[in-house]
Design a protein around this nucleic acid. Structure first.
Length: 307
DNA sequence: GGCCAGGTGTGTT
DNA sequence: AACACACATGGC
């Protein structure tokens, strides 16, 4: 019901070693309860651009265009694809939003946020890109995070295939691509004091000191403890990586916006410490708290923007 | 021009 | 445990 069903269309057949294999640059997914625009533009991912009715972005090493009309998401890639599992995973198309929202607490703020932005989903992003992006996010506005990341990708990513007429696109630089850079080269991307943090994290991942792929298999507290070992990664950024990269739905990052929402709607604007807000939220919002957190974050940001 | 941004590290009570 | 302050850069 709330789970998406799939229709693949527009496939072309290519004869490969005697077998007909379906490979195409286009497909369509049928979706329910999916708000693509809110999902791609709610501050969990930083590289999607809206152009002529479509969302253009990069997933791993693939250039991707996404367009939603009602209950369909139309997909175009630059290169023919054998399968679309990577996209189902990224967009979390198999997730039942009903079941998640049913676990939310029933209070004013959550009701408002969900009624306004129902269909907002959490992505499952590549872990390194997620970790690096949120290391760069600290004490920065989202518009600026996007610019820093765009610059980092243009300068140090890999040039990707794109359809004719489209702007050049670059992969997010891999850990070893960044680990070999000088701090100066990163500061030139306007990331300031975050540059040494990014190099250290890239080095840890490239050398295997931090094994990102293992994190989703660990208990969340163990995974969090490993992320907290990194300089420049505190509780907030660690929880962003656990939530957006590792798929831990209970991770609940508390940033300035969520803090404001919690203080205003749950503590009558009383002064209350960040530590207390964190322990409150992890107990109160439950198993899918991270989803509720993203609704509150997006809702309050949009609310304040309409002043 | 001052305040603040999807924070964190360090140092002080 | 709770605070102050620095950190680099730019949007508003």
């Amino acid at each position: 019901m709330a789970t998406a069903s799939f229709v693949t269309s527009g496939s072309s057949n290519c004869a490969i070693s005697g077998k007909a294999v379906s490979r195409s640059c286009e497909t369509t997914f049928d979706v329910q309860d999916y708000d693509l625009a809110s999902t791609l533009n709610c501050g969990q991912a930083f590289r999607w651009e809206f152009k002529d009715g479509s969302w253009l972005g990069v997933i791993g090493h693939r250039w991707v265009s996404l367009r939603q009309d009602n209950h369909r998401i139309h997909v175009t890639t630059a290169l023919p694809q054998d399968e679309w599992l990577w996209l189902e995973e990224y967009l979390q198309l198999r997730v039942s939003l009903d079941a998640i929202i049913a676990t939310f607490p029933d209070d004013f703020a959550v009701r408002e946020a969900v009624s306004e932005y129902r269909g907002l989903r959490l992505l499952r992003q590549p872990m390194w890109e997620c970790l690096a992006s949120f290391i760069l996010s600290s004490s920065k506005q989202i518009v600026q995070i996007r610019k820093i990341i765009a610059e980092l990708c243009v300068r140090h990513g890999t040039l990707l295939s794109v359809p004719p007429q489209e702007n050049p696109a670059f992969s997010f630089p891999a850990p070893d691509q960044i680990a070999g850079l000088e701090e100066r080269q990163l500061r030139d991307c306007r990331m300031g004091f975050r540059a040494p943090y990014l190099i250290a994290a890239a080095t840890a991942v490239a050398k295997g000191t931090l094994h990102l792929e293992a994190l989703p298999t660990l208990p969340i507290d163990v995974a969090r403890a490993q992320l907290l070992q990194l300089a420049g990664v505190g509780p907030k950024i660690a929880d962003c990586v656990l939530l957006f990269g590792c798929g831990f739905a209970q991770a609940f990052p508390v940033d300035v916006w969520v803090m404001k929402a919690l203080r205003r709607y749950y503590f009558r604007n009383r002064q209350i410490s960040l530590a207390q807000l964190r322990s409150f939220s992890s107990a109160y919002f439950g198993l899918h708290g991270g989803y509720a957190q993203q609704y509150l974050f997006h809702w309050l940001r949009r609310l304040e923007a309409r002043t």
